[in-house]
Simulated assay, not measured.
Amino acid sequence: MGISYSKAVHTPTSIPTPTHTPPAAEMSSTLRESDGLFQVHPAQSRQRQCSLDIVFVHGLGGDSYTTWTKDTTHWPKDLLPTLECFENARILTFGYNTSGFFTKNADEHRARTFTCAEILVSDLKTFRRRGAQDRPIIFVGHSLGGLVIKSALRHAILRRALYGDIVDSTRAIIFFSTPHQGTSQEAWKAFFARLGESKIEKSSVISELEVWSDMLTELTTEFADLATQIKITSFYERRFTKGVMIVPEAVAKMGQKNEQSRALDTDHLDICRFTETDANWRTVSNHLDAIVADIEDLAELQNLPPLSTQVANDASLKQRFESLDRCR
Rank of each mutant, 00 (worst) to 15 (best):
V55G: 04
R90Q: 14
E296K: 07
A187Y: 08
A117T: 08
Q310N: 00
A132K: 13
T66K: 08
D267Y: 10
I173F: 01
L304I: 02
S14I: 09
S143K: 12
K202E: 10
E300F: 02
G182E: 11
K189W: 05
I291Q: 05
K189R: 14
L195E: 06
I149D: 03
E208S: 06
F102D: 04
A117H: 05
E118Y: 13
I173C: 08
A43T: 08
D35Y: 03
P136L: 10
Q319F: 04
F127K: 13
K150L: 13
I15T: 15
S14N: 15
L216K: 06
A290F: 03
V205Y: 03
F101S: 05
E218Y: 02
P306N: 03
L307C: 02
W75L: 00
E84P: 00
P16C: 12
I54L: 00
E33I: 07
A172F: 03
S34A: 12
N313M: 01
H109D: 14
T178H: 04
F235I: 01
W68F: 11
L216G: 05
Q133C: 13
T183V: 12
F102V: 02
A156Q: 05
H74S: 00
L301M: 08
G146Q: 08
E108P: 07
A193R: 12
N286Y: 03
T170S: 10
S203Y: 02
R194H: 09
W281Q: 02
L31F: 10
G59A: 04
G146M: 08
S177D: 11
V121Q: 08
A193H: 11
E249M: 09
A89V: 01
N280I: 00
L92E: 03
V244T: 13
T126M: 15
H10D: 10
D63L: 04
Y5E: 13
F223S: 10
R129E: 15
T73G: 00
A25M: 12
K202I: 06
G62A: 05
T13E: 14
E84D: 07
P16M: 12
V292P: 00
R130F: 15
A89D: 00
Y236N: 04
S184L: 14
A312D: 05
A190R: 10
H41M: 05
D214Y: 05
L288F: 06
E322M: 07
L37F: 07
P12H: 14
L52H: 09
S28F: 14
A315R: 09
C272K: 02
Y96C: 01
Q181H: 14
